[in-house]
Write a protein that binds this DNA or RNA. Structure first.
Lengths: 169, 169
DNA sequence: ATAAACTTTCAGAAAGTATTGAAAGTTTAG
DNA sequence: CTAAACTTTCAATACTTTCTGAAAGTTTAT
C-alpha cells in the first residue's frame, strides 16, 4: 500500500470517529492529517489535501488551536502560517478529555447538584421519592466519574501506566 | 420547586448531554423521563409528556430497548405496552459503555491494527516514519483504553469502587 | 370472522449543522 | 504609503439528521 492511500484511510476513519463524538468531521480530519504528517502544513495545503474550502480550514484550524491540539508555526522568509499537531498521544488524550469534561460533565453535574439541593414538592410521594433517589444516584455516579477524569487530565503518562497496572491487576 | 418542573429540568439537560454524545436528543429524553418516573409509561403518555409524535416515540423506544436500557411491561387487562427504565446507574453506565465501545472503539481499532500490519511504501522516508509511529502510538493507546473499557463492562459495582479507591489512592 | 385497539413503517417536511466563496480585514515588504 | 499576500468573516447554500402523521400492519376480544 502506498503512504498516500494509508493516510487517506486513517483520515477517513478518524473523521468518522470524530463525528460520532459530536466533533465536527472536518475538524477531526484536519487533526488526523497533521497528526500523521512529518511537516507542518499551510492552510493552502490542508485545503487541497482534504478538498475543503479556505473558510472551512480557517474555522476548524482555529477550533483545534482552542482545544490546544494544534500550534501555528511561522517559517522565516514565508508569510504563510503553518500548522502543526502535537504528536504525544497522552497529551492529546488529556486535552480532548479536558475539553469534553468542560462541555459535557460539568454542565450536567451543575444541574444534578442543583436539583439535589432543591426542595421539591409534590402530592405524589412515590414519584417524588423515585425522582430524588434517581437524581441522587446519578449525582453520586457522575461526581465519581468526574473525579477520575479530573485526575486523568492532571496526570502524566507514568501515572497512567501505574494505575493501569492496578486496574488490570 | 414542583416535581413536574424539576423533572422537566432534568429531562432537558439529559437530552442536551445525549445530543453532545451523538445520541439522539429524543432518545435521551425518553430515557430520562422513564428513569425518574416511578411507574412505567405507555407510548401515549410519553408522547404527551414530551410533545413528540407517535412515530418518534416508537422509533426511539425501540432503540432504547436495543441498548438494553428499557423493557416492555404488559399490564393485565390492558392492551397497551408500557415501558420501564432500569434504575441501576451502574448497569446503565455499563450498557451505554458497551454500546459506545461497539460503535466507536472497535471500528477504529480495526483500522489502526490493519494499518499497522500493512506494509506501506513511500519514497518519503521521514513521512513514512512519522506515519508509522503515529499509528503505532495511537494503536497502543486505543488498545489500552479498550482493555479498561472492556473490564468496566464486565465489572460489578463492587469492582468499580475498589478500583476507584486504587486510582484516587 | 371482524372490528376495535394498538404498533410499526416510511415518505416527505422541518430542523439542525457544516461548507462555501466572495468580500472585508490585516499584515508586511518595499 | 500602498499593493500584494495572506487571514478572517459571514450570508447563502448544501447537506444531514430527526420528526411527523397518515397509512399499513398486527393482535386480541367477542
Amino acid at each position: 500500500m502506498q503512504l498516500e492511500e494509508a493516510k487517506y484511510k486513517f483520515i477517513e476513519s478518524w473523521g468518522t470517529l470524530g463525528s460520532q463524538w459530536g466533533i465536527n468531521r472536518t475538524m477531526s480530519q484536519i487533526h488526523a492529517l497533521l497528526l500523521v504528517s512529518s511537516k507542518s502544513l499551510s492552510a493552502e495545503e490542508i485545503m487541497s489535501e482534504l478538498n475543503i474550502s479556505r473558510g472551512n480550514v480557517n474555522m476548524n484550524v482555529r477550533a483545534l488551536m482552542d482545544w490546544g491540539l494544534l500550534t501555528k508555526e511561522l517559517k522565516s522568509g514565508d508569510r504563510k502560517e503553518y500548522f502543526k499537531a502535537g504528536k504525544d498521544i497522552w497529551e492529546i488524550a488529556r486535552k480532548i478529555t479536558a475539553e469534553r469534561k468542560k462541555r459535557e460533565i460539568d454542565p450536567i453535574l451543575d444541574v444534578l447538584s442543583q436539583l439535589e439541593k432543591e426542595t421539591i414538592e409534590s402530592k405524589d410521594k412515590e414519584g417524588l421519592e423515585t425522582f430524588k433517589s434517581s437524581i441522587s444516584e446519578l449525582n453520586k455516579f457522575t461526581g465519581r466519574a468526574n473525579d477520575i477524569v479530573s485526575k486523568f487530565i492532571r496526570s502524566d503518562e507514568n501515572w497512567f501506566y501505574k494505575t493501569l497496572l492496578k486496574i488490570i491487576k
